[in-house]
Amino acid sequence: MRFTSLGSGSEGNALVVEVSEGASTTRVLLDCGFSVRELQRRLLRVGLEFADLDALIVTHEHTDHVGSSLVLAKKANLPVFMSWGTALASGADDGRVDLRILWGGEALALGDIEVHPYTVPHDAREPLQFVFSDGDRRLGVLTDTGCATPHITAVLGGCDALILECNHDRQMLAASRYPASLKARIAGDLGHLANDAAAALLGQIERSHLKHLIAAHLSQQNNTAVLAQAALAAVAGCVPDEIGVATQAEGFGWRVL
């Protein structure tokens, strides 16, 4: 099992998860917050093409996640998986694409990949986040949630790799030029995790199998990689450089479980 981010942040998100079993390989794309042309460029950077993808999964309808998902699904003839709320909000329910509905708590198999959707508090119609597994190892993804819940900590416990939102530093956000309404939205219980909130969540998760920890969805205006790494490292008990960072421009390269 391996995974790579094609970019993470408010300007676009996409993650590839791949599982190989014998001669077969299954690859899914989680979110497509870029144009089709930009996604193609980013895929080529990690050695992939549209034809290498088997399915597209969308977490929610915000532009930096849904992006060109419907165009890509039609162009590449990919089934697209999302919640019914996300389908209604994004227009995916109009028959243009091969739409498959996901429900939080109901796992499904996509080739050799086990997909476990789970619900999160975020200001979208029916957002989902995901844990991916090959049957032995688990990759947890949490990029858009306003707060931690007991359900989230339970679902992410025991993961071998975790991509965890560290959206903003509270002081940087408070001092920013953002309108008060936007600051309140970001910092609210349906917004995005601050560094300290992500660290607190990490502290509640069972981490005995955790080998890869990556900070994601960092605000380019209201956070820095150094601050995010320091917050997570303090809980993980490691040096900050051991915490990976998913950047907007580059994401991160292939990681293997």
Results as ranks from 00 to 15, higher is better:
Leu6Arg: 09
Asn13Ser: 11
Ala14Pro: 02
Val17Arg: 03
Glu18Leu: 04
Glu21His: 04
Glu21Arg: 05
Val28Pro: 00
Asp31Val: 08
Cys32Ala: 08
Gly33Met: 04
Phe34Trp: 02
Val36Ala: 04
Val36Phe: 01
Leu39Gly: 01
Arg42Pro: 03
Arg42Lys: 11
Leu43Ala: 00
Leu48Pro: 00
Glu49Leu: 06
Asp54Arg: 03
Leu56Met: 03
Val58Ile: 14
His60Cys: 05
Glu61Trp: 06
His62Cys: 05
His62Leu: 06
Asp64Gln: 10
Val66Pro: 05
Val66Leu: 10
Leu70Ser: 05
Leu72His: 04
Leu72Asn: 02
Leu72Met: 06
Ala73Gln: 03
Trp84Met: 15
Trp84Pro: 09
Leu88Tyr: 10
Ala89Tyr: 08
Ser90His: 12
Ser90Asn: 14
Ala92Gly: 14
Asp94Gln: 15
Arg96Gly: 14
Asp98Phe: 01
Trp103Lys: 15
Trp103Thr: 15
Ala109Ser: 15
Asp112Val: 06
Glu114His: 14
Tyr118Asn: 00
Thr119Met: 13
Thr119Asp: 14
Asp123His: 07
Arg125Glu: 15
Phe130Arg: 03
Val131Gly: 02
Ser133Met: 11
Arg137His: 14
Arg137Gly: 11
Arg138Asp: 13
Gly140Glu: 04
Gly146Val: 07
Cys147Tyr: 12
Ile152Met: 04
Val155Asn: 01
Leu156Asn: 03
Gly157Asp: 08
Ile163Gly: 03
Arg170Asp: 07
Leu173Ala: 03
Tyr178Met: 14
Tyr178Asp: 13
Lys183Asn: 10
Ile186Asn: 04
Gly191Glu: 02
His192Glu: 06
Ala194Trp: 01
Ala194Asn: 05
Asp196Glu: 12
Ala197Glu: 08
Ala199Trp: 08
Leu201Trp: 02
Arg207Glu: 05
Ser208Glu: 13
His209Val: 09
His212Gln: 11
His212Ser: 11
Leu213Lys: 03
Gln221Pro: 09
Asn223Pro: 07
Ala225Thr: 12
Leu227Cys: 10
Gln229His: 11
Gln229Lys: 11
Ala231His: 09
Gly237Thr: 02
Cys238Val: 07
Cys238Ser: 08
Asp241Asn: 14
Glu242Ser: 11
Ala246Tyr: 01
Thr247Cys: 09
Thr247Ala: 08
Gln248Leu: 09
Gln248Ile: 09
Val256Gly: 13
Val256Ile: 15
Leu257Asp: 15
